[in-house]
Simulated scan of single mutants.
Amino acid sequence: MNSKQKEDEEQRRRWGARTWSTLAAVRSRSPLIQCITNFVSMDLVANTLLSAGASPAMLHSIEELPDFTPNADALCINVGTLSAAWLPAMKFAAELALKAGKPWVLDPVAAGASKFRMMACLELMQLKPTVVRGNGSEIIALSKASTESSMGVDSSHESTDAVEAAKSLAQNSGAIVAVSGAVDIVTDGKQVIGAHNGVAMMQKITATGCSVTALIAAFLAVDQLHALETTASALSIFGIAGEMGMDAAKGPASLRTHLIDSLYGLDEAAVISRVKIASL
């Protein structure tokens, strides 16, 4: 093993140890994660959080927010099935989380699909999300604050196409920006990290992106101070669960089940041996 290989192996082991430590902390502390998410994703998001060891609360009534949101450990806001009736609750919850010093994560689903959706996302961005997680097209659209180049919730861009847009969005907003794709990209505007775990068939299961956004929120709940690394770790963990689930899956439906089972059953040896995170 040459010096470069030794350095790469040492980096992989450090990332493995960090990632396992964060997952173990989620399992130990069972952080309460409030999710204002879309109708399509609620089931998988809740089950992802439960399987990781967190406690999900699918709560969006504006009347309950003053009592509930400040006591949650993190907040996840997903605009997938956005409506004018839900937007005030999303903004109020983000305000409460920010005031309470709790991390919150924005999933700008199909940000460029309509002017209403784009304006909603931009208004939420003003409330200082800790992390923004989307696909390549969503991050490019949000960075440009335009409605160009959109295909609804599907991405017409690879994650690597959105690196510069992600860096710009991170610099302008102060948020960590994550771009999901074949390689998951995470940046603070300067550093760029790639998480290389996952399988292509995960894209055939609706709400996997929504679910990993919620998992990021759970990881931030136990380590907000290292949001860049924590986000990369969450993406890698979800990808590893997909890889392990794929070993027993026959298609998207069975992968969905096995992904959740694999996330629940992850142990230290599997995490350390499978994590593929590196600086880009």
Rank of each mutant, 00 (worst) to 15 (best):
S233W: 07
S146Y: 06
G265Q: 13
Q11N: 12
A217V: 11
E123K: 14
A270P: 01
M244Q: 12
A218N: 03
S211D: 03
D184W: 01
K250H: 12
Q5I: 12
S41K: 05
R29T: 10
A100V: 08
V271R: 00
M118W: 09
G265C: 13
H60W: 14
K144V: 12
K115T: 13
M244A: 14
D154Y: 05
A162K: 02
A182Y: 04
K99D: 11
E64Q: 11
D188W: 02
A84C: 11
G174K: 02
I185Y: 08
N47S: 05
I185F: 08
E95W: 02
R14I: 14
I240Y: 01
M202D: 01
M119S: 10
A54W: 05
H258E: 06
G174H: 01
R117C: 13
N47D: 04
K167N: 00
A141C: 09
A269M: 12
Q203F: 04
D223T: 09
N2L: 07
S262M: 04
S150H: 13
R12K: 15
Q224M: 15
A195I: 08
L263P: 10
M119K: 13
T230D: 03
S168I: 07
V199W: 03
A207T: 04
E229T: 07
A89K: 07
V79Y: 06
A253H: 04
W15F: 12
G181T: 00
Q203T: 14
A100Y: 02
K167D: 02
W104M: 10
E229Y: 07
G194F: 00
S28F: 11
S233Q: 07
R29V: 12
V109W: 12
K144R: 14
I185V: 15
V192N: 00
G198F: 02
W20I: 12
E63G: 13
T231R: 01
V163F: 11
A253N: 10
T230L: 13
A248T: 09
L235M: 11
A24Y: 01
G112M: 05
R14C: 10
A227H: 00
D161S: 08
V179W: 03
G101S: 13
T69N: 10
S211R: 04
T208I: 09
G80M: 07
P31I: 07
A248G: 05
E10Q: 14
K99A: 15
G112L: 06
R14M: 14
T231Y: 06
F219H: 01
T208Q: 06
L142V: 05
A145M: 13
S233H: 09
G101A: 11
S156T: 14
S211G: 11
D184H: 01
L96A: 05
A110F: 04
S180A: 15
S156G: 15
L65I: 02
L23M: 11
G174T: 01
N71F: 10
Q171A: 11
H258F: 15
I272N: 14
S28V: 08
Q224Y: 12
S155F: 00
V192R: 01
L215V: 06
A57Y: 05
L263C: 08
L75Q: 11
P108Y: 06
V40H: 03
F116H: 10
L87T: 11
P31R: 00
W20P: 09
L75T: 09
S262P: 03
V212G: 12
L225V: 06
E64S: 11
A278V: 09
T231Q: 03
A113I: 10
V131E: 02
V163T: 09
V271N: 03
S273L: 10
S173G: 04
D154T: 06
A248M: 08
